[in-house]
């Protein structure tokens, strides 16, 4: 079972999709990075907080039937890669829709949801998921 600290320190990214923008080249990253992989040393100290757009569209997706224990009760569920209006790709579940009605290009927005729980007495993990933007 994972410690609470492991979850806690990732809250900005997992709850609010907070990423970073490189002050040297302007590229946006999610999750947050302390070093721009392109600018490397030139980016040190120049990585700025960047709130990733909550709107985007489905780039690709899959309906998962063979699920890990944590998600067993949700199956079949949809997981997708969403391209936000910033041009950043995110991976997460697509919910509040029949998985077989999802289409590539469908507009979605990010919401905060429960992701899974560590057994009956462990940490409840929250994070972002995507819902259709009706």
């Amino acid at each position: 079972m994972a410690s609470v600290a492991r979850e806690w320190r990732e809250i900005p990214g997992r709850y609010n999709t907070v990423g970073t923008k490189c002050g040297a080249c302007g590229k946006i990253y999610f999750p947050a990075r302390s070093l721009c992989p392109k600018c490397r040393r030139a980016s040190v100290g120049k990585m700025e907080r960047y709130d990733i757009s909550e709107e985007g569209e489905v780039y690709t997706f899959s309906v998962v039937h063979d699920a890990p224990d944590a998600n067993m009760r949700m199956k079949p569920y949809a997981v997708g890669m969403v391209k936000t209006t910033d041009g950043v790709l995110l991976t997460g579940q697509i919910v509040d829709i029949d998985p077989h009605r999802i289409e590539i290009g469908m507009p979605v927005r990010t919401v905060l949801r429960k992701i899974y729980e560590d057994g009956e007495s462990g940490v409840i993990h929250y994070g972002f998921k995507f819902v259709p933007k009706w």
């Binding site: 997706f61 899959s62 063979d66």
Partner: peptide, 23 residues
């Protein structure tokens, strides 16, 4: 941290590649 624990399995990541390839 950013794929598996969000519900993406190894099979589903490859399935997403396949889906986009077909698309």
């Amino acid at each position: 941290q950013w794929e598996s624990s969000m519900g993406a399995t190894m099979a589903s990541l490859h399935a997403m590649i396949a889906k986009r390839c077909i698309h």
